[in-house]
Simulated scan of single mutants.
Amino acid sequence: MRFATYSANGETNYGVATGEGMIALSADFPQWATLRQVIESGGLHELSIAAQGRAVSHPNGSFDFLIPIPDPEKIICVGVNFPDRNAEYKDGQEAPPNMSLFIRFPRSFCGAGQPIILPPESDKLDYEGEIAVVIGKEGRRISQENAFDHIAALTLCNEGTLRDWVRHAKFNVTQGKNWDRSGAMGPWLVPFTAAAQLDDIRLTTRVNGDLRQDNRTSRMLFPIRRQIEYISTFTTLVPGDIIVTGTPTGAGARFDPPVFLRPGDVIEVEAEGIGKLVNTVEDELVESRT
């Protein structure tokens, strides 16, 4: 089953995504306003049962995907997490002892099929294809041995970045990582049931059909088990939290000269067993200051 949050006829719903469209389920479960609450209550299996034998309620073309978890408590992103990506930094360090982390806000992402936005303040919008894990069980100081027990589902992320704005301050990247609708997440959640779904799967990013990023999760400097262990040392992970697990080398900033995203570009992030996240790029329409 693939669980998605979507909008149709001015209303936000969640349901099951099929090849023909969406099976609406949120009206049947008024106790769960969002997929975050479904996960918090351990309700994904109940949704699966409810969807069986149901007809599509919203055919393709009649709805828009939204980010799967619209109301996470936190989105934590892991930076510089593949060997070739680390080699891009000329600091002589083969691998850092600890992972780099930063926070993103939910409104910095749009859903699958929606345009990511290039603001007038920058012409250096870049892509970063990543796998994201959604926490399903609360935990603090979680061991690597038990880390996968705390994952409820998987999704995809284009962790779009304004490269010049990540250099506005000496130590932080927050500004360049949190422009409204500068990235994308989705299109759906795939329930996590086995380690094989994460341990060694291929992750790719294409721009206008050109393969730009291509790597496997088995090559991560900080495997996802370690990410959960490390992050839960300093903060309690709760259901609906999202960990964006790191991007391979191949972003546009590393080309010579750099190749940044432009309106009309199509970005496809794909991972085995999860699916494909496709977005276009549009200029932001700015009317006036408020």
Score class of each variant (00 low, 15 high):
A4T: 02
A8L: 05
N9I: 04
E11N: 08
T12H: 03
T12S: 07
T12R: 05
N13R: 13
Y14A: 02
G15W: 00
V16W: 01
T18V: 00
G19S: 01
G19Q: 00
M22G: 00
I23V: 06
P30F: 12
P30H: 12
Q31M: 07
W32V: 03
A33Q: 14
T34R: 11
V38W: 09
G42M: 07
I49L: 10
A51I: 03
Q52E: 14
S57T: 10
P59K: 01
N60S: 04
G61P: 02
D64G: 03
D64E: 06
P68M: 11
P70Y: 05
D71I: 08
D71K: 07
E73L: 12
E73H: 11
E73I: 10
I75C: 05
I76S: 12
I76F: 08
N81S: 06
N81W: 08
F82A: 05
P83H: 11
E88K: 11
G92Q: 11
E94C: 06
A95G: 05
P96S: 14
P97D: 15
N98M: 15
N98F: 15
M99G: 10
M99P: 14
M99Q: 15
S100I: 13
F102K: 15
I103K: 15
F109A: 02
C110H: 01
I117M: 13
L118W: 03
D123C: 08
D126E: 03
D126A: 06
Y127C: 04
E128N: 00
N146K: 15
F148Q: 07
D149I: 05
I151P: 00
A152R: 04
L154Y: 02
T155I: 07
E159N: 12
G160P: 04
W165L: 12
R167C: 13
A169D: 13
N172T: 15
N172W: 14
V173P: 06
T174R: 06
T174V: 12
N178A: 08
W179Y: 15
S182T: 09
A184H: 04
G186W: 02
W188L: 06
A194S: 07
A194N: 06
A195R: 13
A196N: 13
G209R: 09
M220Q: 13
F222S: 04
F222N: 01
P223M: 10
R225N: 14
E229H: 15
F234I: 15
F234M: 15
G240P: 12
I243G: 09
I243H: 09
V244P: 07
R254G: 08
F255Q: 14
P257D: 13
V259E: 15
F260E: 02
G264H: 14
D265Y: 06
V266Q: 12
I267N: 02
V269H: 01
E270C: 03
E272T: 00
I274A: 01
V281G: 09
E284A: 08
E284P: 00
V286K: 10
S288Y: 10
